[in-house]
């Protein structure tokens, strides 16, 4: 099997390498990819949308349908992961575990017993050994706000520099993942619960599709943002730029929520009890 696979791969690769003989040279300005439609995008983006980053303009304006359904694909991936792994029935354990935060000693309390909620120096944990490190916790708490500010900057500044909804959303999701790793899954779920995540990823897709539908209501084509000029009180060119920003915010929210829900499901195998 190994040799069969190797020979098949080798033959396939030689065919591909033979195919590259006909390719245009690398970096050729006159290659077919660079001569048909892309010069229009490069030369007209500034006049049409006043967005300097051509990639953002093409992503959210000229090819808005593409990005909308990519967002729908990400949304359905989050739903699929939820359906595959989530176990709704929680297994009842007959004891609870608490840890004294100052010394790290673990207490096991049998069924029926419960610590009084006023005991602040104890925290509830799930396994006998849950990772607990003061340095990692403090560093995580210190670094997470900066990651989130950077993510918001990436979303908002996507018009003028590399970035946009996808990247900013992934970084924003990564900050929640970092919180879940440096603390534990229980406190991450307190901050960003499963219901809130579900609300956010539907909200993101809704913002994208709703912007398109709003354009129809204002008398233009689907996702033609220049129609938004009448309700934003700007000229049509600036309205396209603002429309791109609204759509990118929707994409960012959806991607963030899907990253968080994928992480929650994968790391706890659908049980949502203990993380890494």
């Amino acid at each position: 099997m190994k040799w069969f696979g190797f020979i098949a791969v080798f033959l396939c690769g030689s065919l591909f390498i033979y195919g590259t003989v006909e390719f245009p040279g690398w970096g050729d300005p006159l290659s077919p990819t660079s001569t048909h439609v892309s010069p229009y995008y490069i030369e007209k983006t500034m006049e049409d949308t006043s967005v300097p980053n051509i990639v953002t303009a093409v992503l959210a304006d000229y090819r808005g349908y593409d990005t909308m359904f990519e967002t729908a694909v990400i949304f359905s991936a989050g739903i699929a992961c939820l359906f595959l792994l989530r176990q709704m029935k929680r297994k009842k354990t007959d004891f609870r575990l608490y840890r004294h935060t100052a010394t790290g000693i673990t207490f096991r309390i049998e069924k029926g017993g419960k610590l009084p909620p006023t005991a602040k120096e104890f925290e509830r944990i799930d396994g006998l050994w849950t990772p607990y490190d003061l340095i990692i916790k403090t560093t995580g708490r210190f670094i997470i706000p900066f990651i989130q500010i950077f993510a918001l900057y990436v979303i908002a500044h996507g018009h003028h520099s590399p970035g946009g909804g996808f990247q900013g959303g992934v970084i924003l999701g990564a900050s929640f993942v970092l919180f879940a790793i440096s603390h534990d899954l229980r406190s991450a779920l307190n901050r960003m619960s499963e219901k809130l995540t579900a609300f956010f990823y539907t909200l993101g897709v809704y913002i994208y599709a709703g912007t398109g539908a709003l354009c129809i209501l204002l008398g233009a084509n689907f996702l033609d943002y220049s129609a938004l000029a009448t309700i934003l009180f700007v000229d049509p060119v600036t309205a396209r730029s603002h429309g791109i920003l609204i759509v990118e915010i929707g994409v960012g929210i959806a991607v963030m929520a899907v990253m968080v829900i994928l992480y929650y499901n994968l790391v706890s195998a659908g049980k949502f009890d203990e993380g890494l």
Partner: peptide, 8 residues
Amino acid sequence: VSTVFFVS
């Protein structure tokens, strides 16, 4: 993110 997914 995908490294975190693989590790988990």
